[in-house]
Design a protein around this nucleic acid. Structure first.
Lengths: 257, 257
DNA sequence: CGTCGTATTGATCCTCGTCAAAGTTAGTGG
DNA sequence: CCACTAACTTTGACGAGGATCAATACGACG
């Protein structure tokens, strides 16, 4: 049934979304990346308190980062879609704060962190790109915080559905209103700060109101306008483009500095 | 009454906390910074949808970044202490996502974003430092998300109190159990996702249980152990130190590359 | 001294969490 | 291919935590 299908992308295909790299910059990155390798659903890429050693580019499959409290409770911090680079938020620290867990089978590549400081020395524009990619992941989390702080159960799910749709659209894939979402309701509840049971109820309610339909591993957005209204969702707030001041007026497309 | 007293710090005093800069690197940064200027309580440093033009280093005073929904609701995303650099999360985007508002009178310096790409070119270690500082701010927000997702009102406040104490201690200031906290209960409620009224009640409860005392603009932590227990707070999770792999084994102290 | 922002307190209601049981799907091994 | 089990989802009943409304009290400041 092929739930997660995505072209295999290299890290740079994510990183150079905003800054077009030169051949040399591409080579510097590829030199760092490991060969792609397969991971299974439930596999973890890292554990809390470990020393970060790699970034991971997610070529295929979905993952999430989550926090485990000692009282066995888990909070999901972010979802990672095919194409995302994992570990950006942690790699400057001595210890991971989160667990990274595969939500589906997948394929990843590892980039050793030990090589990154050389990137900063040799390829400033790649470094800028890293900074930008990090900030973009942070905005996802900030966005979720806003959602959780300000919205009730119904609006939270509405917001989440739109958010994921928006992120999927941003990867350049098809933008159908129906897409796969490999999340259990438990995970969804941990992501939005509500009980598993209430997620189920709220999804039913949203289905009754003909706003979103959810079955199995997929989700179907029926009424964008109404959803956006009740969720306070403004897509323009997600504008992903780089600050021209940051990249230095116009982003150079061809040159070697 | 002097509620916010802190030595005036320059940006680099924050940035080089982890990577010791060379003289040349120091000069490059100072060349960018504006003269310190005064701001008043309630002043805003930026508004949503504006193009980010400056980072701001907070020399004196407290600030916060917050999100305004169109239905007049506000969610506080982060608090900024003297010494923090503001704008790190937004400056790579074309538009600000948040509002930055001074919680007290203060003194700030501005760093034009247009100069930052030159820093990336000329001073890779400063760029790395920026990356590290950004990630550290993000961890605050992530931390708050965990707090809000997993804890009830009581634990949220407990967690928040410990978090701020920890951050204050990290600035190198005195680590008394009693410190100023220039926050109204309204702001606190917007920060923790609960109603203003319930903040008041919960604070009373915490005072009754002899865990934390709050009056006026200050807060007094009475029982660290118990607070940490009910809040799931593990200070070691906040370890701030740089990943040695990222900075390249041992951080060079003297050299010019 | 009056006014405004802020804090406290009480009463009521409702959203959502919890517990429990049944129903459903997927995965496994014979 | 079927049977069994484990994981996931749905539904119901109940109660608790917290929101809301409203009135009062407490500073701070002009």
């Amino acid at each position: 049934m092929e739930p997660v299908s995505s072209p295999v992308r290299s890290v740079m295909q994510n990183l150079d979304r905003h800054i077009a790299f030169t051949e040399r910059e591409h080579r510097l990155i590829s030199a760092l990346e490991s060969e792609p390798f397969a991971v299974a659903r439930g596999d973890t890429l890292w554990h809390p308190d470990e020393v970060p050693r790699h970034l991971y580019s997610l070529h295929r499959g979905w993952a999430c980062t989550l926090h485990r409290s000692e009282d066995d409770a888990e909070q999901v911090l972010d979802l990672h879609l095919p194409g995302d680079v994992l570990g950006l938020l942690d790699f400057t620290f001595t210890t991971h704060y989160t667990t990274a867990e595969m939500l589906t089978d997948g394929v990843v590549r590892a980039i050793p962190i030990a090589g990154i400081h050389r990137l900063f020395q040799a390829a400033p524009r790649v470094a800028m790109s890293l900074q930008a990619a990090t900030a973009r992941q942070q905005r996802n989390i900030t966005q979720r915080l806003v959602n959780v702080l300000g919205n009730d159960a119904c609006s939270r799910i509405a917001h989440f559905a739109l958010e994921i749709h928006h992120r999927l659209a941003g990867t350049g894939m098809e933008v159908s209103n129906r897409f796969t979402l490999p999340l259990t309701q438990r995970r969804l509840s941990q992501l939005l700060g509500m009980s598993e049971v209430h997620v189920s109820r709220t999804l039913s309610e949203l289905a009754e109101r003909r706003l979103v339909l959810r079955q199995r591993q997929s989700i179907d957005i029926l009424d964008f306008e109404e959803l956006a209204r009740i969720a306070n969702f403004r897509p323009e707030r997600f504008s992903d483009t780089l600050n021209p001041a940051f990249v230095g007026r116009e982003p150079p497309t061809s040159p070697d500095l």
